[in-house]
């Protein structure tokens, strides 16, 4: 095994180009477990810790450019305003020690359906910035997950950052685990209201081979909100609409039975989380969220 220690992003890309099989390691929270337990013996480990810009973020404009290695702890502490869904999701990641090391780049690189960041990124509509010596491209999050623990990266590419639109409305994230901390998701759900585009987006974790959106549920809800002019009136979402939305979210799951939970439970729980997060976000929108929006609109 070789340990590659690029000092800059350019060196990192060059190293990855030279050794497409090299396994990038940043927080180490996935890779080191695999090494410690003899599940993986890559020829090269590519340490990204010394590439400083991966640990930085830019939040000046309408979009946050979040470095792939920004630790979850910092997202929780500094980006709760622009990225509320991701900040909530970050807070559910493993333990404080893991949150101090891990970042979204690791979640995206591993692309496990159980990664906590995915539902929030899906709901927010993020883009993944990836690069190689050949150049840089941005992959819409909807196209990023291609299979169980597989993603759209080419062999020579590394994840540089995610671009996430600054939240224009309330966002929520909820995850079911059988312990109150330090637990891998049995299933997870992210929901974001986008009052600027009058749309709702969702993300489901651990309930399908990849992280997925509940598109039919979104379409249904978007239509219902439009039809009842709820974005304008600020009235509550009718219970029947919330129920149907929840049922469609459940139906979007394609889960398995495993040691962490049954498929039936996952479907059921995603429905409950969908209903609850819709209620929480919509109530927030009706309250301070929409009031702020109206004030903003009147100015």
């Amino acid at each position: 095994m070789d340990f590659l220690r690029p000092a800059s992003w350019e060196e990192a890309l060059a190293a990855k180009a030279a050794h497409p099989g090299a396994v990038p390691i940043a927080g180490g929270t996935d890779v080191m477990v695999e090494i410690n337990f003899d599940h993986r013996r890559p020829e090269h480990l590519l340490d990204l810790n010394r590439v400083e810009e991966l640990g930085e973020w830019e939040a000046d404009g309408d979009t946050v450019r979040l470095g792939a290695s920004v630790p979850y702890t910092r997202i929780m502490e500094h980006l709760r305003g622009p990225l509320p869904g991701l900040a909530l999701a970050s807070h559910t990641v493993a333990s404080p020690q893991i949150r101090n090391r891990g970042g979204v780049g690791g979640n995206l690189g591993t692309a496990s359906p159980a990664g906590d960041a995915h539902p929030a990124l899906l709901a927010a509509g993020a883009e993944v910035e990836v690069a190689s010596v050949r150049g840089t491209r941005r992959i819409p999050i909807d196209d990023f997950y291609t299979g169980v623990k597989r993603n759209a990266l080419a062999a020579d590419e590394l994840i540089r950052a995610v671009h996430v639109k600054r939240a224009s409305g309330p966002q929520q994230f909820a995850k079911v685990g059988t312990r109150n901390a330090m637990v891998i998701a049995v299933c997870a759900f992210g929901l974001a209201l986008h009052p600027d585009t009058r749309t709702v987006r969702t993300g489901i974790g651990s309930a399908a081979p990849t992280p997925v959106r509940a598109r039919a549920a979104e379409d249904f809800l978007n239509a219902a909100l439009e039809e009842d002019r709820l974005w304008d009136s600020g009235r509550a979402v009718p219970p029947s609409v919330a129920e149907e939305f929840a049922a469609l979210c459940s139906a979007a799951c394609n889960p398995i039975d495993d040691v962490r939970g049954t498929a039936g439970y996952r479907r059921h729980a995603v429905g409950v989380l969908a209903r609850r997060t819709l209620t929480w976000t919509w109530e927030a929108y009706r309250g301070t969220g929409r009031a702020a929006d109206e004030r903003g609109g009147a100015a």
Binding site: G27, M32, L45, D47, P96, Q97
Partner: peptide, 28 residues
């Protein structure tokens, strides 16, 4: 040795981390 227990917690540049999940070379 899988980041699930915290028994190996050390501070790395001041930050508490699981030392079992830090590759030795990353501590350079």
């Amino acid at each position: 040795e899988q980041g699930e227990c915290g028994s190996c917690t050390v501070r790395l540049d001041g930050v508490p981390v699981c030392s079992c999940l830090v590759a030795a070379g990353q501590a350079e």
